[in-house]
């Protein structure tokens, strides 16, 4: 039996969203807000900060397991996300083990646009069965 987190849809990405994230993260990279600059790099438009999708992944894990139970979240930003696109984040349990009296779960996580991976990663959460927010999980064969 595999446990799958219920996929969550976010967006569509807006330029306002990117500008707000740029401000709150102190990220000066103009590729997220400056259209001519982004085009000069060969992109069709500005691109979303990878940390926006990463933040949605972290939030999905937080709501399922609690922020204090997230042990790690590592993600590779494989392709950019553009304004107007909707991002689906999700995750599937790949491993579960007990160590030092605690139970840990590893999940493959992703951020997709229209079924295409834009970000993939691995998360580890510390979890006790009773603490899992089961309504956020879907069992699949």
């Amino acid at each position: 039996m595999t446990m799958t987190l219920e996929p969550q849809l976010h967006g569509p990405i807006t330029r306002l969203m990117l500008a707000r994230y740029l401000v709150c993260s102190d990220d000066p990279n103009p590729v997220h807000v400056d259209e001519p600059f982004a085009r000069s790099l060969g992109f069709p438009s500005v691109i979303a900060q990878g940390m926006v999708s990463y933040g949605w992944l972290a939030e999905m894990l937080t709501r399922a397991y609690g922020a204090d139970n997230i042990r790690s979240l590592a993600a590779r930003f494989s392709s950019p996300v553009f304004p107007g696109e909707e991002v689906t984040v999700g995750g599937t349990q790949t491993r579960r083990w007990v160590e030092g009296g605690s139970t840990f779960m590893e999940l493959d996580v992703f951020a997709d646009v229209a079924g295409s991976h834009r970000m993939t990663g691995i998360a580890v959460v510390e979890v006790e069965k009773d603490e899992v927010n089961m309504d956020k999980e879907v069992e699949s064969a």
Binding site: P28, N29, P30, V31, G50, S72, F77
Partner: peptide
């Protein structure tokens, strides 16, 4: 410089939030 580089990935490992 920003015209040659991008954020390509991120990882957080946490003892707690």
């Amino acid at each position: 410089s920003h015209d040659r580089s991008l954020h390509a990935g991120h990882a957080i490992s946490a003892q707690r939030a």
